[in-house]
């Protein structure tokens, strides 16, 4: 009897605790993201990137998008339109011309996150990074100056670099790529003498980091500086480096053609300019 009494009392007590109700009208702050009144710039971005490509451009400062251990400053608003116009003309439009709108809609990162300054790592600078093919962060947006093509190329190189990652993360390049410079990859690429990377068959210091970075750096450099530059560069680095770079170039051209149906260079079968020539023409027109 006593036992039953205990059980009853306990049941009452425990059930009583379960009867609180949630207030359905309670505001959960920050759910759904931050909000602010749209400006002309917001409308422009919506019209130019969200509607056609479902691409969000996040230019308002959000510390959680970046490495919390570094100092940044936000984007200067007029720079946003300058950068995104350059991205559209130099990166998106050549791809659309060679691979069609669906290609860009399918593979383009869904979120561009911008910040005004670079990330300074004590010796190196981070100009951009990609996360899972979804987000591309462009750093140093405040430094972009359309009158200085070298800066335009440097900033857009980051865009091409990060998009290159999306491509090889979707379909990997041939494993043969990894064998061309196998012995020259190094985690301490930033402290290696800068005279080394060219003769070793790389387009940049950072390309030495690993085969993935090498692949996207090579694509980005050829797209940004053009085929003529690449030929000159191969001459400048000596026979051994040139042979390796030529082998890499062949893999890239074949990869673009067979995997994505894109002519990387101009062909003479009537298809006209390749991706590289279209990109170069867009930079010149800017």
């Amino acid at each position: 009897m006593k036992k039953i009494l205990y059980i009853m009392v306990l049941t009452v007590t425990l059930l009583a605790c379960a009867k609180e109700e949630l207030n359905p009208d309670a505001i959960l702050l920050g759910m759904g993201g931050d909000t602010w009144e749209r400006t002309e710039l917001d409308d422009w971005l919506h019209h130019e990137f969200v509607v056609p490509y479902n691409m969000e451009v996040k230019y308002k400062w959000d510390p959680y998008e970046f490495d919390l251990g570094h100092n940044f400053v936000p984007v200067d608003e007029p720079q946003v339109k300058i950068l995104m116009t350059a991205i559209k003309k130099i990166w998106i439009e050549p791809y659309i011309e060679k691979a069609g709108e669906t290609f860009i809609k399918r593979f383009a990162p869904k979120r561009y996150v911008l910040v005004g300054s670079f990330q300074y790592n004590g010796g190196t600078i981070t100009r951009g990074f990609a996360e899972g093919g979804n987000k591309i962060a462009i750093l140093g947006v405040n430094t972009l100056d359309l009158n200085d093509k070298s800066i335009v190329r440097r900033v857009l190189r980051t865009v091409e670099h990060e998009f290159g990652h999306t491509l090889h993360q979707t379909v990997l390049y041939p494993t043969e790529w990894q064998t061309i410079c196998r012995e020259s990859y190094t985690g301490s690429w930033s402290s290696a003498p800068s005279s080394e990377f060219g003769p070793a068959g790389f387009v940049s210091e950072y390309a030495r980091a690993n085969p993935d970075e090498d692949f996207v750096e090579t694509i980005a450099y050829i797209l940004m500086y053009g085929r003529e530059w690449f030929e000159d560069y191969m001459v400048s680095v000596g026979t051994d480096g040139a042979a390796k770079l030529r082998a890499k170039e062949n893999i890239i051209v074949a990869y673009f053609k067979t995997i994505w149906g894109i002519d990387f260079y101009e062909t003479y079968d009537g298809a006209g300019d390749g991706l590289v020539e279209l990109t170069q023409a867009a930079i010149d027109r800017l």
Binding site: W61, H70, P74, G116, S117
Partner: peptide, 27 residues
């Protein structure tokens, strides 16, 4: 632009570049 955001504390964020960012600019 600016916005008020609930972080650990209510925070006034100057979320696009202006003079107030100059002293903090790492460049």
């Amino acid at each position: 632009s600016y916005r008020l955001k609930a972080m650990q504390l209510p925070t006034l964020m100057f979320d696009s570049y202006n003079y107030i960012h100059w002293p903090a600019d790492p460049a």
